[in-house]
Amino acid sequence: MLTAIVIDDEFFAREELIELLHETGEVDVIDQAANAIDGLKLIHSVKPDVVFLDIQMPKISGMDLIAMLDPETMPSVVFTTAYDQYAVKAFEDNAFDYLLKPIDPKRLMVSVQRLAKVKSAQQPAHTQAQINALATKSLQQVPCVGHQRIMLLPIQEIEVAYSDISGVHVQTADKLETSQLTLKTLEEKTELLRCHRQYLINTQAIKEIQFLDNGLAEVITKSAKVVPVSRRYLKALKMELGIL
């Protein structure tokens, strides 16, 4: 059995697809989400084999969502769309599967069999290049999930992002939120710059840099947060700031 989740902002669209997947007898739909942010959280928590993903969703589209996933651990993605001729062309070009709504059960069966094959081969479902070709190139906001709420933080408000044992956190001037994105994804898809193994810094938020002994440094942000800079990343940071 394949495990799957369905992400779509329309209730009936989810219900219809879950029903059809159930009828195939090959897929176990373990959960569903009504938006991409909840969907992202679900992907990380239940780690399904496959995600059925709608493209047009509020705030964060299907394309944004796959930009937020780590390509190495990413599940197989099947896009669902009612009508989107440009996206469909891109899917075909990049070996992504897609389903047109209303979904034809026979066509769905073909997809499911293909997915089963991918699973048994135990390889990543999509190559890095294929994902990059489709995914949103640069994220403008970072989805954060708190207790009973969803936040979208614009990149320019973020001063620092860091990881610790409890997850990835993004720090603005006055808030600290927990993000579903990895530091690596944030580094690749946003303008945040790596300054430490566990820290990314927004260069626009730097107020001063204090140089310490043995090649270390500390960044003081505009809201007086202290961020460590490791020896390895100091040079790159200085270059970015044009002080080298």
Binding site: E16, E19, Q56, Y83, D84, P102
Partner: peptide, 17 residues
Amino acid sequence: PHFLFNALNTISAVIRR
């Protein structure tokens, strides 16, 4: 067309219940 196909998809789900 987006409206049309989404409408049909909705109807297709509603038919069941």
